[in-house]
Design a protein around this nucleic acid. Structure first.
Length: 349
DNA sequence: AAGTCGTGGGC
DNA sequence: TGCCCAAGACT
């Protein structure tokens, strides 16, 4: 606790508040996502949806643009569902114990404990990547941390530590301190043990095993996938297609994509001018957690006077509105390369 | 238990 | 460059 107050992080946008809405939003955004990446998204989201009622009253399509680019879009869909559940089933007030919080969509045990600790001072342990690293090293806990037996030992250890802690424990400083320790001292590579407040009693430090803990997980080869994306332009509009959920980019608006050249051909004929041929653009590889996607963008311009009726999940979007659309990161990159002026920050000078 | 689900930073 | 992994949850 004292180390956290002196050396830990104090001024992150979600610190210094016990507002459950703000804490909850930060915890969801921070799942598998680095702090520096989250900050901008967090502030933009709060400006647009200042409280849980504003979020619950919005449609999912209004929410997704504020999550686009952050990844793991089920988080945004669950966030929206959760806001509605709290407004309908909990009178618009966040439940105040972690067991109740963990029943809400998108909130597991660790996130529930974090919310309960920061907002309601509940003495429940969290178990995120930082804490796993600190605990496996400090207590010498072997085994891949994602395996259930290891995970159970970690939770039991975290509970035992809290049980043995003094009753005046400051749960905010304690919880934040464990994460700060993990992110500032007990880092994955080259941990800064000399500045660690508990180095003298740390198993890994005493045995020189920092680099062996946590036990590395053996990786699996990620398969290669490929697709063609169609950039169909009609005057100042581009055809976008909403992605199904669950699924990759579920809820986002992507370019229509095709698995085969034949399907692409058919689409070009339908969405482009009959006589104009599509133009192949520079390809790119987008890396996901569990596969690599080779994207082949094709550009076709429709010169016919009539705007073709899009399919149910499709929309013609004005090029100047693309910046506000819920685009997947690589799709944004492609369209930004094609229409840089439409994505450029507003110049007020 | 193993897959699914994004994107970007750090080394 | 390739690889690991981040304030994980859900199926």
């Amino acid at each position: 606790m004292s180390w956290q107050r002196k050396h830990g992080r104090q001024h992150l946008p979600w610190q210094g508040t016990q507002n459950p809405y703000r804490i909850w939003l930060s915890e969801i955004m921070l799942q598998q996502t680095q702090v520096a990446t989250v900050i901008g998204y967090y502030q933009r989201f709060l400006e647009r949806f200042p409280d849980i009622q504003a979020l619950a009253q919005a449609s999912q399509d209004e929410v997704m643009p504020y999550w686009a680019g952050l990844g793991y879009y089920a988080r945004a869909r669950n966030l929206h569902r959760c806001a509605q559940a709290i407004c309908q089933d909990w009178g618009g007030k966040f439940p105040s114990c972690s067991q109740d919080i963990a029943t809400l969509p998108g909130i597991g045990r660790s996130t529930a404990a974090a919310i309960a600790a920061f907002c309601f001072r509940e003495r429940s342990p969290i178990m995120d990547g930082n804490v796993k690293r600190v605990f496996t090293r400090y207590f010498g806990i072997e085994g891949v941390t994602s395996e259930r037996s290891t995970e159970q030992r970690l939770w039991h250890t975290a509970e035992a530590v809290l049980d043995a802690a003094p009753h005046n424990l400051d749960m905010t400083a304690y919880t934040q301190g464990l994460m700060d320790l993990g992110s500032q001292c007990c880092t994955r590579s080259r941990p800064a043990c000399t500045s660690c407040p508990v180095q003298n009693t740390c198993y890994a430090h005493m045995h020189g095993r920092q680099h062996e803990l946590p036990t590395p997980k053996k990786k699996k080869a990620s398969p290669e996938r490929q697709c063609r994306m169609l950039i169909a332009r009609h005057a100042d509009h581009i055809l976008l297609e909403q992605q199904a959920s669950p699924g990759i980019w579920g809820g986002l608006w992507s370019l229509p994509k095709y698995d085969s050249d034949e399907d692409l051909q058919t689409a070009c004929y339908r969405w482009g001018s009959r006589e104009a041929s599509a133009q192949k653009m520079a390809g790119m590889i987008h890396v996901f957690t569990h596969f690599r996607l080779h994207i082949e963008p094709w550009y076709v311009i429709n010169n016919t006077p009539q705007l073709a009726e899009p399919d149910p999940a499709q929309r013609w979007v004005a090029i100047d509105d693309l910046r506000n659309a819920a685009l997947p990161a690589p799709v944004r990159k492609i369209l930004e390369g094609l229409f840089p002026a439409s994505f450029a920050p507003v110049d007020n000078g």
